[in-house]
Design a protein around this nucleic acid. Structure first.
Lengths: 159, 159
DNA sequence: GTCATACTACTCGGATAAGAACTGTCCGAGTGGGGTAGG
DNA sequence: CCTACCCCACTCGGACAGTTCTTATCCGAGTAGTATGAC
């Protein structure tokens, strides 16, 4: 069980977009250059964020990506879900249906104790991710590295 | 990000072992027959549980698997970790090292705010799994389906 | 000088391969029990 | 009848393919800006 590394890329890219000049679109090439990432593949991840309504995109000259809404309204869970999909990590195959006393009509995704226990853990995970927004991370970084917004904008301008 | 289905198999198999006659080893064939699972592949998962110290195994006639310790001392996290590995789902690649102002000597798995946020969520997940033991699940199932222990032992005897 | 038009460079978007991980399968190593022969 | 030995069936254990998902890449569709020419 390992998360796609695209999640890390997406989160950092969203943060950089949050620091970008307002009203300016940032190209995939620029976002990739930040951390020397493969441009085309990062572009794929950004497309997923667009489909999820987290980013907006524009083609042609002066095109690129920008945040679709205020960073306070973008939870980390939104970004993770956009990349990884909404399905749960633990996928109950309802093997109890084949077991002794198993009924084909019962929904074991709800009835199975094992499934319930695993779901409870995953809900706790999602709750933590839903509780934190891009704006929260932005504030935390800026309190540690006050020059980050300035440096980010400079880097975007010089690419 | 999807968990191996072996986790579901392992959890249910451990529960069945907890219900088995004490002092009796259960063969992989029997555990597989419970839910019509592929024997050889389930065997592979059981071996992982043995390596993790959750089960003990014996070869030869009258051989098979049994729980290595009391179900109260086996947390769900132990089983999940045995199958999935101990590494975290979110793997911080420390891409900040390549970024503006990035220092190669800094351990960004600890310093990076994004990494911290993701780790916090994963710790919440692990905490939930560590808080529940096989014995807890056993009790919950028995209160809903009191005949489960009896039926399990019968099924083992008839295979 | 102004406006419309065609062109060109640019950027995203989806379709297309390479690689890794998960899933599934097989045969050999080692063990324990039962049968057999000798005392 | 008891005991020691040998043989055999049995079970796990690790090595070996098939399939799905992740990672990586490329080229085409569409757009905005610019230059050009006519009015």
């Amino acid at each position: 069980m390992q998360m796609s590394e695209g999640v890390e890329w997406a989160l950092h890219s969203c943060l950089n977009l949050a620091w970008a000049e307002e009203g300016t679109a940032v190209k995939a090439t620029q976002l990739a250059a930040f951390y020397e990432l493969p441009t085309a593949y990062l572009n794929k991840q950004l497309q997923a964020l667009v489909r999820a309504g987290i980013l907006t995109s524009a083609t042609g000259p002066r095109g690129g990506f920008r945040l679709a809404r205020d960073p306070r309204d973008i939870a980390l869970l939104d970004v993770v879900t956009a990349i990884e999909g909404a399905q749960e990590a633990f996928r109950c195959q309802e093997i109890l249906k084949k077991g002794p006393g198993g009924r084909a009509t019962v929904d074991y995704r709800k009835a199975c104790i094992v499934s319930q226990a695993m779901r409870r853990a995953e809900i706790a995970w999602r709750r933590e991710l839903a509780a934190q927004t891009l704006a929260d991370l932005k504030v935390q970084v800026e309190s540690k590295q006050p020059r980050t917004p300035e440096m980010t904008r400079q880097r975007i301008a010089n690419l």
